[in-house]
Design a protein around this nucleic acid. Structure first.
Lengths: 187, 187
DNA sequence: GCATGCCTACCTACTGATAGGTTGGTTGCC
DNA sequence: GGCAACCAACCTATCAGTAGGTAGGCATGC
């Protein structure tokens, strides 16, 4: 992969996570990368191309990140705490989960970006589901709903907690809230 | 309260909830209200004034809304479901909780707006806390964390679930996820 | 060996649209 | 008269996106 192109994606990703999609401009990216704005357009003609590239990359980087945790050793509650820790890391840098910020601007997205977003969310939740199924099998987690629903709920909680903790309460509130959720499922 | 001023706030609120703070412009508001852009500036000189007015109003309207539910008859789990239903109503209109959308754009806010936001979140969580304390007293809810932490977690979950459900899964996913969370606390 | 053609990466310079915000009024009510 | 509400016209900054061009790498054919 081209070096500049990767740098553009890195910078854009950080900006979107910090200030949101609509406050991230090609000029900001251009300044930070050190190439002219037209060069950003050379690599990503329209903003929606950039957004979709970000989502695709997220699917192959964050997805791997989650997958590693899920595939690792340890109990299901442990793995939920590790997944939450990924979100806590972002929070520390005042950054939201990419999927979360982009979802917040859903109604300003193109149709193709919306579809890319939906697919990324679905795949992320699918990875989370594995932990809840493990929890059922080893009897370390108890929940009356389906594993799919619990995984979706947990992912949603992490998105929301990151947003509210950044605005009010910070990392400590995030940790406490996470523990409040996980312990309610833990056996 | 002035009629036009109220109409401006109504329109702005809906826009922010639908497309987000940075995609809501004075021109959009002006078009929808039927007065000129300069008149919006007459009532709210800077955008941050509008934002703060929205948050204040939210504190006195949504806050009342929540308070009515909390003060009503019924068990604590029932009240949690009623609170969730308020968020489900917004979702149906493709609208996010005002506090949620504004929080997503936290890093583009002025300092005073940030403080107004923080206060609104804190007061909202404080209302939610009452339900969790009721749940402890009547033994209808069980959680190992503090009522404050559980309330914060529940509010965070609702924010996140609204965002993820709008992007992926819709109202049904929202309902299922809500049930997955509430039932884990329910006795 | 080298000229031709094509490609990628990047540039300067620009466009039209829109953003938030200001100035200097006019109108009508207390 | 004074004030609140409103307006047309304007400002500057910035947005996404485009036009047109340059420099260098790499292949082809002679």
């Amino acid at each position: 992969m081209n070096d500049t192109k990767t740098k553009i994606l890195d910078v854009a990703e950080g900006l979107v996570q910090r200030v949101g999609l609509n406050a991230m401009s090609y000029q900001h990216v251009s300044d930070a990368v050190g190439v002219r704005k037209a060069s950003i357009h050379h690599h990503f003609p329209k903003k929606e191309n950039l957004v979709e590239a970000l989502l695709e990359r997220c699917h192959f980087s964050y997805g791997d990140n989650y997958q590693t945790i899920v595939d690792g050793a340890g109990s299901a509650p442990d793995k939920l705490r590790q997944l939450a820790a990924v979100f806590a890391d972002g929070l520390q840098k005042q950054q939201l989960c990419l999927v979360g910020t982009i979802s917040a601007d859903l109604n300003t997205l193109s149709e193709s970006s919306r579809q890319a977003l939906e697919a990324t969310i679905q795949e992320t939740v699918n990875i989370f589901v594995i932990v809840f199924k493990q929890g059922q099998q080893e009897d370390s987690l108890s929940f009356s709903s389906l594993a799919e629903e619990a995984a979706y709920a947990f992912f949603s909680f992490l998105l929301g907690a990151q947003i509210s903790a950044r605005a009010c309460g910070g990392e400590e509130s995030f940790r406490n809230a996470t523990e409040a959720i996980i312990s309610s499922w833990e056996n």
